[in-house]
């Protein structure tokens, strides 16, 4: 699950999940829910594999979201479904979605970047929790 957090100039996300893979998948949903108002209308027609190397820390979360943002900006791809496998080296993910269609997708925000301000990823007894602020 994710929730949208108040931030004066920008927007934050707080994500909670049982495991890191689910957390990364929910964070990705959170990101695209800010970009497109009707995320549920994004059909899982095309898939894209993303592999990232890195320790299971907040930089991995950052790099994951930054990669998705790059794919949206340069390939106009909207993703709505994510299967993220955490490996010893990093992550191996499959994202499903479709290209942006002005007729069907209502866009909400231009996310300029993922930021490091208040960037948090912690594992506790109750699962994983992360916070990230997006530059709007």
């Amino acid at each position: 699950m994710y929730e949208v957090l108040e931030h004066t100039a920008d927007i934050g996300l707080r994500i909670r999940a049982d495991d890191l893979g689910s957390l990364l998948a929910d964070a990705a949903r959170g990101l695209f829910s800010l970009i497109v108002a009707n995320l549920d209308d994004v059909r899982p027609l095309e898939s894209q594999r993303i592999q990232l190397r890195g320790a299971a820390d907040e930089y991995l979360l950052f790099d994951w979201l930054a990669e998705l943002l790059f794919l949206f900006e340069t390939r106009r791809m909207l993703f709505s479904e994510f299967a993220v496998q955490v490996t010893d080296q990093g992550i191996d993910a499959v994202c499903r979605g479709e290209p942006l269609d002005d007729q069907r997708h209502r866009l909400d925000h231009e996310v300029k970047a993922i930021t490091y301000h208040g960037l948090t990823l912690v594992a506790g007894r109750d699962g994983w929790m992360a916070e990230v602020i997006l530059d709007i």
Binding site: A9, D10, Y116, H117
Partner: peptide, 9 residues
Amino acid sequence: IHWGYGFCI
């Protein structure tokens, strides 16, 4: 001035 990230705006 308002809350930014890192530097304030």
